[in-house]
Amino acid sequence: MLKNCVKMIVKHHVKGWNEFEALVTKLETEKKPINVFFSGDKDESGKSWCPYCNQAYPVITKVVETAPPESHFITVEIDRPFWKDLENPFRKDTRTHLVFLPTLLRWKGAQRLDGSQAANPDLVEMLFEDED
């Protein structure tokens, strides 16, 4: 048990595109799987402006605890005006190409869940466990 705790998945939390891009560029060099949860940012009460993100958040938070240890998990919070701009880099960058919030994806992989899928524990589990 103790060993498991030590070898836990490495969690990161960033806000906005610039912080995210800087972090992911750094982590990429480690060649470990990187799973990213893109979600709406939260107010003081811990609620996001994005309703599906609120549904997905507890599901993903729980599954992350059992995810393969040799990986990174990044939570990216995006504020509403930024997201609503259809030209924002989360939507436009070919590496992210987001259409929905929330989106849970494997960085540079085919694995991607969006909208209500990200709140389905079966699917979230499958994404974290999937080997490239």
Partner: peptide, 10 residues
Amino acid sequence: NWVTRVDLRD
């Protein structure tokens, strides 16, 4: 491939 697996699981 991925979407197919998601669909099956779903």
